[in-house]
Design a binder for these strands. Structure first.
Lengths: 279, 279
DNA sequence: CGCCGGCGATACCCCAGGGGTATGGACGGG
DNA sequence: CCCGTCCATACCCCTGGGGTATCGCCGGCG
């Protein structure tokens, strides 16, 4: 199967609309239609159910969408890792969520730098959920992920830290005085809508909550009484005036894991993992 | 990156010879040379070191070979799984080495068939090392692998059984009377050369030992005094007249694992794994 | 009920680029 | 020193991927 066809199919399968998919792919609609039916002929099966009013996935199409994304990720990773291997810099790229696990990260970097044979670590701070993408697409060699928020299927991982979660609230808020909360208490607080994080493409889904890009912004917005958020215990070390943290007893436990691609042959990644496990 | 270019590169990187690679790809050498240098230009790095007498991989080339094989496997898997999803048969394909773990396999199939919601299991018996390929290339949904012989990087696994190994010898052989053996005892027994298994393409590497295709053949050849072999304990149940098994005390322990692709969403695979763990 | 508008498929054209053959140029061995 | 090996270059051909114009289907609306 050709990469081109697969990319086309994934675009159509995601949009469920040939016209929009063609637009996204910067091409006209007819060659896209043709490419898809050609792919269907090659595979000997129909992938999309077209009525003249709507497009939907067949079972086979759903399989190809899931498996195809994995294959495209692997291709992109091959390209990115090759490009990075070509640069003279022998560094390793570590991706982590901006503002999360700050203390752990600092300790890890410090301890690793003291190891014999340590190489420079290029830290990429990214938005929530982006570490996983960076790792899968080959732009990072190793990442700190947070279960259950990030998916770890197909990655090798080691657990580093498990913690509960706290609600971060403006100090004047009625709920701020409680000794503990439940998720139900926070589910419908109309004056504190949940913040909105950017998508992979940097855009924001519509909604009532304020748009945020990092934890500093987020805590400032909490202090201003505009939003509230549930985060792992370790944010306590970042708390500022005007915000309080209240344990949420029934929030899922968050496990910070260090993750890397399963075929990694990098000594630097192995060293980082070894160091992290010794912390 | 294009699939075609990647396939070409992998062929050249494996052969380290443009002429032979072109032959393998059923094309002439010049367009292959051109395609590779075009790929190098696109990636902005050289992948192969050519002198007019020999070709070798650069560091970046080695990375692309490793990552590229993974990506090509993922592509092939996407295609195969889509094809299989299109067939009406709701079965699941289980790959296992012919003759290995027979008792375990029989128990597993029997127990799984009794589960509610069990689907037909299509068992593929293949040569050693081929289960891994079948799984990675999407022709199988789940496999029984044997560590440390099969690689499990990038697969999800559960351990089922760990056992020692025995040497299978013709009953008349001098070593057959021993209570136990060491690998060194078997390393240089010129009258019992190791058997040769077929490669992925069905051909045999040259060597002194007899060519075998399955364990029945193998045991017959042992009985005839033509070869000897070291296998997991569980072959004892297959022993025939004329052969004896002697424990090899320093042979590595063999662990039978059930393995599946990490992104598998198949209920049937999950059911098989659950059943296997309960045995 | 018929017209319109949205959407995917078809028809037809064009040309970029992938593949082939012939040949050059570098280098090692006899 | 010449020849054989092997990768690169030059040049040609034609497939097939992309574009525009248009059709056919169908649901909604006046």
């Amino acid at each position: 199967m050709d990469t081109r066809e697969l990319r086309y199919f994934v675009a159509v399968a995601e949009e469920l609309h040939f016209g929009r998919a063609a637009q996204r792919l910067n091409m006209a609609q007819p060659p896209l239609s043709r490419a898809i039916s050609q792919l269907e002929r090659r595979l000997g099966t129909s992938l999309l159910e077209r009525s003249s009013r709507s497009v939907s996935l067949t079972d086979a199409g759903a399989v190809l969408l899931r498996e195809g994304r994995i294959a495209l990720d692997a291709l992109e990773a091959a390209e990115q890792r090759t490009r990075r291997a070509a640069l003279a810099t022998p560094g390793v790229v570590l991706a982590t969520k901006a503002g999360a696990s700050e203390e752990l990260l600092a300790k890890l970097l410090h301890a690793y730098a003291a190891e014999p044979g340590a190489v420079p670590v290029d830290v990429v701070l990214c938005g929530p959920g982006q570490q996983e993408r960076l790792l899968r697409s080959g732009r990072a060699d190793v990442a700190l992920l947070h279960r259950p928020f990030d998916g770890t299927a197909g990655l090798d991982t080691e657990e580093l830290l498990t913690e509960g979660q706290v609600a971060v609230l403006p100090s004047g808020h009625p709920l701020a005085g409680r000794r503990q909360l439940r998720l139900a208490d926070l589910a419908h607080v109309p004056d504190l809508p949940h913040p909105r994080w950017p998508d992979a493409d940097g855009s924001y889904a519509p909604g009532p909550g304020p748009e945020v890009r990092d934890h500093t912004q987020l805590l400032q917005l909490v202090a201003l009484g505009r939003t509230s958020v549930v985060l792992p215990d370790s944010v306590r070390s970042m708390l500022r005036e005007g915000v309080v943290a209240v344990p949420v007893v029934d929030a899922p436990q968050v496990t910070t894991v260090i993750a890397w691609p399963p075929h990694s042959r990098s000594l630097a990644v192995a060293g980082l993992v070894r160091t992290a496990l010794r912390l």
